[in-house]
Structure formats: structure tokens, C-alpha cells
């Protein structure tokens, strides 16, 4: 009984504090935007430092979202809301939030997605996966990111490639699925990768289950992250 009560309290605390934290993040992000606007474009150094802050704020937000979602999934409180999505439109919407920062860092985004490609998934969850991988690419790409989507043998593959140094060999050798029992020592990719694996595996169709694949066949042997959805 007491145990049960504690659990309920925690989810209430979580819900209300997330609301609060999101308000704070909104304020931070928009104040940073205003500050950026107030500097003249010559003030490059300052603008760049602000960009860095914006990026970190975004990461903070992504982590918050991922933690909360994982908490809900763990407590069977998450309702998988699968809808039909126009993939090109979905990616364009998701990239909107990244556009400014990527431009600022001089990274060019290339999209390779056929028109009228419709696929079935929970768009909030998959957007979380894409946000996470684009955030990483922002950090590791040299100056290029390519996002492609296509259907092979009844699987939708969304691939995000960059032209950075690629994933470290041990990450690729281990295989993503084996990293689910994550040691968070690996740093920034820990939570995001764990989250992404969960999201992929929640998407099932008939006897197929979604999964991730990492390799270094991105642009000029850079990293490539592929999400397979049945």
C-alpha cells in the first residue's frame, strides 16, 4: 500500500515538475534567440557562444523528454500512438528546430526522401530519435549531414549520415542491441541510444520488430545511423 502510494506521488511530481522545467527551458531558448537578434552580425564570437548555449539547452530538453518517456514506458503508461505519416513532411517538420543551429555551424543538410512516401509510426517518439541523432551529428559532422528515407522489403529505413570521423570501432563491433544495458560511462550517446533502441523495438508489425544499425558508411566514411521500422 505504502509502496503503491510512493509510486503515484512520484509520477505526479514528475508531471508537474516537467511542466515547470519546460517553461524554464522555453524562457531560456527564447531569451537566447532575442539576444542573438540583438547582436549585429559582426559580433560573430558572441553569436557563436550563444549558439553553443542553445545547443546545450536543446540537449537538456531532449534528455528530459527521453527520460520522461522511458519512465512512462517502464510503467506501462506510454500509449504508442501509431499514425500514418508523410515521411518527407515529418522529417522537414523535425528538422525545423535544428535549422538555425546547423546553419550557424556551417553544416549543410541534404535530404533524400521520395515524395508521397507514407509510413506508420509514433511520430513523437521517432522525432525524439531523429532529434537525438541530429544533435550528435551537429557535434561530430565536419560540414555535412544527409538524411535519407526509403522502403526496402517492407521496412522503412531512415538514415542519418554525416562526414565526421565516424563511430568508434568498439561501438560498431558491439552492435547496438547489445548496448541496451548501457553503461552510461560512454558519455553523451548513452541515454539517447538506449532511448532510440526502445523506440525502435516498440514498433512492431506482424512478426517484425524495429531496430537500429550503426556503421561508418556515411559521407566520406563518416557515421551513419539507420532506424529500421517495419
Amino acid at each position: 500500500m505504502t509502496d503503491n502510494k510512493r509510486k503515484i506521488d512520484f509520477s505526479t511530481i514528475l508531471a508537474s515538475s516537467v511542466h515547470d522545467m519546460k517553461n524554464s527551458l522555453s524562457m531560456v531558448i527564447n531569451t537566447l534567440d532575442e539576444l542573438t537578434d540583438s547582436f549585429s552580425s559582426q559580433d560573430e564570437a558572441r553569436i557563436e557562444r550563444l549558439s553553443r548555449l542553445k545547443y546545450e539547452t536543446k540537449r537538456l530538453n531532449n534528455h528530459l523528454v527521453q527520460m520522461l518517456t522511458l519512465y512512462k514506458i517502464g510503467n506501462e503508461q506510454y500509449y504508442l500512438n501509431v499514425t500514418d505519416n508523410d515521411v518527407a513532411e515529418f522529417i522537414a517538420d523535425t528538422m525545423l528546430a535544428h535549422q538555425e543551429l546547423l546553419e550557424q555551424r556551417g553544416i549543410v543538410v541534404e535530404l533524400d526522401i521520395p515524395e508521397n512516401l507514407i509510413w506508420y509510426f509514433d511520430s513523437s517518439l521517432v522525432a525524439g530519435v531523429v532529434n537525438n541523432v541530429v544533435n550528435n551529428a551537429y557535434r561530430y559532422a565536419n560540414d555535412k549531414i544527409r538524411i535519407s528515407a526509403s522502403v526496402h522489403n517492407d521496412w522503412l529505413v531512415i538514415a542519418v549520415s554525416d562526414n565526421g570521423d565516424g563511430y568508434p570501432a568498439e561501438m560498431i563491433n558491439k552492435g547496438v542491441q547489445n548496448q541496451t544495458s548501457i553503461s552510461f560511462e560512454t558519455g553523451s550517446t548513452g541515454l539517447g541510444l538506449y532511448f532510440s533502441t526502445q523506440v525502435a523495438s516498440m514498433h512492431t508489425h506482424q512478426d517484425k520488430q524495429g531496430y537500429l544499425h550503426l556503421d561508418n558508411e556515411g559521407i566520406s566514411n563518416g557515421g551513419r545511423f539507420s532506424l529500421f521500422l517495419p
Binding site: 511542466h19 517553461n23 527551458l25 500509449y79 500512438n81
Partner: peptide, 23 residues
């Protein structure tokens, strides 16, 4: 503040025209 999926699962008489997630 949160993902909206839990809001669409209830029995609702009326739906908003859209959602916007903070921030």
C-alpha cells in the same frame, strides 16, 4: 509540456485543432 500521446487515448468529446509541445 509533454508528448501528447496520452491525451489522445482518453475518451474525448472534443479534440483541439492541434498541439504544440514546449519548448
Amino acid at each position: 509540456a509533454e508528448n501528447t500521446s496520452e491525451m489522445v487515448m482518453g475518451a474525448m468529446e472534443y479534440y483541439p485543432d492541434g498541439y504544440l509541445t514546449k519548448p
